[in-house]
Write a protein that binds this DNA or RNA. Structure first.
Lengths: 209, 209, 209, 209
DNA sequence: CATGAATGAGATTTCATTCAT
DNA sequence: AATGAATGAAATCTCATTCAT
């Protein structure tokens, strides 16, 4: 990659990173372009060299989210067990330094999707990818064989990521000071509960209660 | 209740209903006071006779949401079975005429909660009420006895409403034209899948696979 | 006319008058909305209660110009002789207090017409009205009978208002201090020269030179 | 002329040509320096190597206009008859490929002259040159002898170029698609009508009507 | 009680100009 | 000589809020 294009990518990346931070902290429509420029340490006008307008910044972040989810699914796919995969999925948004930033951003993304067709398309793509990714995860997992409910993998996938997103949605309610570790713990708890429900062999032992 | 105060309530109610519509359609921060006044068929100034400012309108709607959830839980508590209760819970947001309005509004409410402490307090209250309500629901249900996983009712409750909110979150992605009935069907599907997972006696029959 | 609507008209009128002044002084695209609001002694935002945007202000002034020309033609039509009618036509823009304001504005209007289809339509309408008005003027004038060149009234009309507009165009070059009376004198000079050319009976006496 | 300075002239010329195009199409103050640089296929910065700022570009084009008019007068002076000279004068702006570009530019130049003293000076010079040029044209023409109105050559000159500029002003109203040939025809029509008025011997024959 | 004209701060966006490379 | 990234002032437009009527 040439110096030039890497510079450009850096600037874009720098702007997007600042925008993500601001958006997460204040929301799309309460964040001003000036906020972003200030957070990035550049002038307002410079943002417009790299993005046609604010909406394009949002769209670019939406695209970034799509890519991030794809990578997440890939990482989850490499986990040895489905439980571990689920743990990866459920805690993906718990690593951010400024807390809940990512969750709040994704919430805004869904809210925006309900109004902005362009964002809607990306978020729908992401939803599809998530569903398919989890279906694939299930298909290749050993746990499936123990699936005691003979549930459709697709239905399981939908359930899993409804739980994941619901838990993420709730996570924005945690006090701002909540450390990332505690966030993780909560999400893991939910993931494990769900997993037990889906696949726990324990259920058999208790079958006759 | 005096004529006067009922009038006042009507006006407030009328404004809040219009505000809910506008907020659902455009989001809190893209809805102007003028939008609300127009939708309510009154003047902008009149809104300020009933609400100190825009934030109070949002706060009042948040309070309204809290009340609505309380009523929902009550209704769910009267259902003969837990499955039916869950069906009521999961489809509560599918009745609105302009589709997804309510889901989008709740999404905005959570997003706002992550930024606005006042809204955060209300939404946290709601979350608590939801959790307790579902715990109570489970406690008084027959299904609990069949709980094959010996799960903590509190964990089950959290799972249930994570699923509920996650599914609602995803529902804003449905094409705007999706009829309410189809929305209901999707939510019911999720509710039933979850219920089967939690309580289905079928799981025993398959226990030895 | 009700108090209300006259108020509204007054505001609109007040804004338009200030805008005309500013536009004449600085040109459409070098006049800021702030300039107009300041000149009108009101806030910027108020302009937007009466005009959707800057273009609408320009369009309204274009419409005003159309009306002004219609009235001018009517006044000219009431003159007893064609010479007097022409004198009225040629000096219409010489009454303004701030000098050349009106000429400069009309120049800007034509320039804008070459770029903005909406303004173009109005200005074309005005051109048509001017041509037809002058044709009518000629038709009902005694001078026509002496028309020594048997020129098409339409060609004469076109010539007359080409001269009128050309002279107005040149008038913006007069030093800013030039008093209105001197402007009038120059325009009258041109009008009379043209008239002599068109209708002077003197031409016969000199015919045999 | 050295290679270097001819290069410089080429660059300047190239920039000015592009600027003329842009200015004609969009107007001085709606054309950005970036528009010009793009149209010239160079970088913005380079324009500033040849011109101090945007105003200097306009001033240079005004000077270019002055030179063009001088050349036009020279060409007109070489015409065998005054009618032909007038035809040359009146159609000078009809040769441009993108239609009306030149007319619109001259309109902008006059409008600018009414605001910008520097441009005003140049445009006044041009006006003087035009007047003197046409006076000279008349002086050396045979038609003068037939001048049936015993008009002052200076008055005739003023009339001629009022008509010329007025007709040019009106020409910007022609639909953008109007072919250059048709533009020419219209201008020639006006020129001929004016000429007949000024010098036509036919007037004598009709003297007794 | 009800209106909506009015304000002015602030948001988005553009653009002439500079300067390091 | 040439580039184009960067700046920041300024322009257009919006909107929460107030207040005279």
């Amino acid at each position: 990659m040439s110096q030039r294009s890497s510079d450009v990518l850096d600037r874009r990346g720098q702007i997007l990173q600042s925008a993500l931070l601001c958006f997460g902290k204040c929301g799309f429509h309460q964040t001003s372009m000036h906020d972003i420029s200030e957070s990035a340490g550049i002038s307002v006008g410079l943002i417009y060299r790299y993005f046609k307008n604010k909406e394009e910044v949002i769209a670019a972040l939406a695209a970034g989210h799509k890519k991030a989810i794809a990578e997440l699914l890939e990482r989850a796919g490499e986990a040895p067990t489905l439980l571990q995969a689920m743990e990866i999925l459920f805690t993906s948004h718990c690593t951010e330094h400024p807390p809940q930033i990512l969750s709040a951003f994704v919430l805004d993304l869904f809210a925006e999707a309900s109004r902005n067709p362009r964002v809607a398309r990306v978020v729908r793509d992401v939803a599809r990818a998530k569903a398919e990714g989890v279906v694939a995860l299930i298909a290749r997992s050993d746990e499936l064989k123990k699936n005691p409910h003979r549930l459709d993998p697709r239905a399981i996938a939908e359930l899993i990521f409804a739980v994941k997103d619901g838990a993420m949605m709730h996570s924005v309610l945690c006090p701002a000071r909540t450390p990332a570790a505690q966030h993780r713990e909560q999400q893991l708890e939910v993931a494990r509960t769900l997993w037990r429900l889906l696949f726990s062999p324990i259920s058999h032992a208790n079958g006759h209660n």
